[in-house]
Design a protein around this nucleic acid. Structure first.
Length: 757
DNA sequence: AATATATGCGTTTTT
DNA sequence: CGCATATATT
């Protein structure tokens, strides 16, 4: 981080090629090797799911270094996530057999921040500028709206902020937005609010995420010499997940690639699922015209999934238009078909999945190799409940993050004010936490002065306590706080920062506040604060720590324990599992209602890509589920199976459904998932039939009784029936069981009416 | 300043 | 339905 690249100097010629560093490429297939060796000029690597994308990327990087084509500091490798950046670092170091120092590997935002810290003054910031998170941004916009007396109901801060972010994603500063575009948002005031927002950021000495790239663009444009230095420096540029780049990121890359043109972008247009966040599939579709003379290399050999899974995914995604097109193939053995299973409701869906999980586990599969991938967060709940009931260890990815917890944000706010006195947002957050009798009235006085004199809040507060405007008590308290801050700030020069943090939390009364609290969560919060102080020790400065938490918001989950995973499809991108469950494939859930209502074809296609991502996560088994009924927002709704189910190629699908529910084959446990004798694939489960049949049949069920058989019943097995009570199976005939009930005598029943006892 | 009640709203979220 | 905000109430 601290390496002061001397950008003024032309880098010396690359060192001579060293034979000891030659990299073996024989583990790669021909196409992969071609992608590694095509180092010169623009290259687009279209890497289908499971085709060894990461391997190519890391080998290519190692190859460039090993061949002596560039020194580490002359290579720029850009990712979207810190996880991907870390993986790249580790894998390249492993390939080279030594750690690589001084190279530029990181996320767009981290790299943008790194450049910006060096040239902050050029865009009106100081080098220690704060990076605001989403919460800070929103509060800032709220303040602006309030200051203008704009009704938050009519013009929600969220909407204004979203507009600003969209502009930033497109590389548009406030002065560059076409006036017509501002007209539609926030009663036509969005544009002026944008300008004002930027103004405030500058006063706060702060940048939001979008700024980290946008300011770079401004910088490069304003100072051609600086741009030229970076252009010369970066001989080789590598970009991961190119389909997810937005316009600002594209422009950023284009500037940096201008001198050497050695830019290699890896991506898959079929896995573009972040357009709602500003990603432009167009970037990847246009690559050849954007970078003239570009080579396009397609990685199409899939090493991950069985042919059925691959064919199901390919057949589905073929319904999208405007693709670059790839034909994935594999040499793996056929494997199991994709199971499509209809169930009664969400609860049963969870039951079915979890009993499959248990069954697989008892066959020796590990929980780490199984996951349920849902469309939206609310779907995780039913799974969690069931997993808890059964005592299956699990993790839900994407819960509340450590640095987003209230107590952590409060603590960080203290540190932020110490590190950067102009950080009003942080100051406001903790000025009265714990309670210091500095309520709205006092704060308003500070604000008034700050606005009038265009001062940061701390400076205004400083001046205010020199006057008699505040009541004596408030004046004393505020003075005391400012005094503390000054003291802590001077201590920060001499005291190790973890110690300082502990001292600040203590002396400010913040720890005491939670110690005194009798809230049930207080103990946990104190633990978290301790953890925070411990975490500080991993960084060599307070600034470094603050940078880290701004840019690295991820949860680092220990992968040691064997756990079943529940997560959204979005966060599953890039991962793989032996077994993947895909619940909730119903119209309105997946594809999501909102994309159906608002986004038109483009949004539907993105949903379809999401489905594609889901299926292609599976190595061995994919199970798609849909429920006939689902409770949404507290209301029961009967639902129609997703159109995506119809789009799966029938030959690669094994339909399984509840008897009577959809008139299809009886459901079975793991061993029986392939039992589809009653089903000619490709017709009986089509929506037409669904609509005609299910509701009536379903209502006829004794709902309490119908629990899905979790595994095939066997003679002699003890079972339970809602109406007849306990009994023992005498004979099995397909879905029909003969059961000797203890109280009701021997009866013939359908298996879905009984459960294993 | 702190609790009680009303209201509103409800995808995905790498940084 | 369940959560997060806003407003009312003491």
């Amino acid at each position: 981080m601290s390496d002061p690249f001397d950008l003024a100097d032309e880098p010396p010629p690359p060192p001579p090629r060293s034979p000891s560093a030659v990299l073996r490429l024989d583990a790669l297939n021909d196409t992969q090797r071609a992608a590694v060796e095509a180092t010169e000029g623009p290259v687009l690597v279209l890497a289908g799911a499971g085709t060894g994308k990461t391997r190519v990327l890391t080998t290519r990087l190692a190859y460039i270094l090993a061949q002596g084509l560039a020194r580490p500091g002359e290579v720029l490798a850009v990712t979207f996530t810190n996880k991907a950046a870390r993986e790249m670092r580790e894998r390249v170091s492993a390939l080279l057999g030594q750690p690589v120092e001084g190279w530029w590997v990181g996320t767009f935002h981290a790299l943008g921040a790194r450049i910006l810290r060096i040239h902050a003054e050029a865009v009106g910031l100081k080098p220690n500028f704060t990076i605001l998170d989403a919460d800070d941004q929103l509060r800032l916009v709220k303040q602006l709206l309030e200051a203008h007396g704009i009704d938050e109901k009519r013009t929600p801060a969220r909407v204004v902020l979203a507009a600003i972010q969209r502009w930033k994603n497109r590389g548009l500063g406030a002065d560059a937005v076409p006036a017509a575009e501002g007209a539609g948002v926030a009663d036509g005031r969005a544009l002026s609010l944008y300008a004002e927002y930027q103004d405030r950021l500058r006063t706060l000495n702060a940048a939001d995420f979008g700024d980290l790239l946008l300011h770079c663009l401004t910088l490069f444009q304003a100072d051609a010499e600086i741009a030229r230095r970076y252009q010369r420096r970066f001989r080789y540029i590598l970009v991961d997940e190119y389909q997810d780049t937005n316009v600002a990121q594209y422009l950023w890359l284009r500037v940096l690639a201008q001198a050497h043109h050695n830019i290699c972008c890896v991506g898959d247009d079929d896995q573009s699922i972040y357009s709602w966040r500003g990603a432009e599939v167009g970037n990847i579709l246009r690559f050849e015209s954007d970078f003239p003379g570009a080579q396009v290399i397609r990685l199409e050999r899939n090493y991950r999934s069985t042919p059925h899974i691959l064919a199901a995914a390919s057949g589905l995604i073929a319904h999208n238009e405007g693709r670059l097109g790839k034909t994935l193939w594999t040499e793996l053995n056929e494997g199991e078909k994709v199971v499509v299973r209809g169930v009664w409701d969400g609860e049963e869906e969870a039951r079915v999945v979890c009993s499959e999980v248990e069954a697989l586990q008892s066959k020796g599969e590990t929980l780490n190799e199984m996951a349920a991938l849902v469309r939206a967060g609310f779907q995780t709940r039913e799974f969690e409940e069931r997993l808890i009931t059964l005592g299956i260890p699990y993790r839900v990815v994407g819960g509340p993050r450590f640095y987003e917890r209230q107590e952590i944000r409060d603590a960080i706010a203290y540190l932020r004010v110490i590190a950067q006195p102009d950080d009003d947002l942080a100051f406001e957050r903790i000025v009265n936490v714990p309670k210091r009798g500095l309520g709205p009235a006092s704060l308003q006085a500070v604000h008034r002065l700050a606005r009038a004199e265009r001062l940061p809040l701390t400076a205004a507060a400083e001046r205010l306590i020199g006057t008699d405007e505040l009541k004596p008590q408030a004046r004393n308290r505020l003075g005391g706080l400012l005094h503390d801050f000054a003291r802590w700030r001077s201590l920060s020069a001499v005291m190790p920062h973890p110690e300082l943090a502990a001292l600040v939390l203590d002396e400010s009364g913040y720890t005491g506040m939670w110690q005194a609290s009798k809230a049930p969560e207080a103990a946990g919060r104190l633990d978290n604060l301790k953890e925070l102080v411990t975490a500080l020790a991993d960084f060599d400065s307070l600034g470094g720590f603050l940078e880290h938490i701004s840019l690295v918001m991820e949860n680092e989950e220990s992968t040691a324990a064997d756990k079943f995973t529940v997560m959204t499809l979005h966060s599953a991108k890039g991962l793989e599992f032996d077994t993947v469950f895909l619940p909730g494939w119903e119209e309105g859930v997946f594809p999501n209602q909102r994309s159906l209502d608002e986004g038109g074809t483009a949004a539907l296609e993105e949903e379809r890509r999401l489905a594609y991502v889901g299926i292609t996560r599976a190595r061995q088994r994919a199970v798609v589920l849909f429920a006939a009924n689902r409770r949404m927002f507290g209301r029961w709704q009967s639902s129609v199976p997703s159109r995506f189910i119809d789009e799966l190629p029938p030959d690669n699908v094994e339909p399984v459904s509840e008897p009577g529910l959809y008139g299809t084959a009886p459901a079975r446990g793991v061993g029986g998932l392939n039992d589809s004798a009653a089903w000619t694939a490709g017709d009986s489960w089509r929506p037409r039939r669904f609509r005609a049949q299910p509701l009536i049949d379903a209502v006829a069920f004794d709902v309490g009784a119908r629990d899905a058989p979790e595994r095939p019943f066997e003679a002699g097995q003890r079972v339970f029936h809602q109406k007849f009570g306990y009994g023992r199976v005498i004979a099995v005939d397909g879905e029909k069981l003969e059961v000797a009930f203890e109280k009701a005598g021997t009866k013939k029943v359908i298996d879905s009416f009984v459960e294993a006892a």
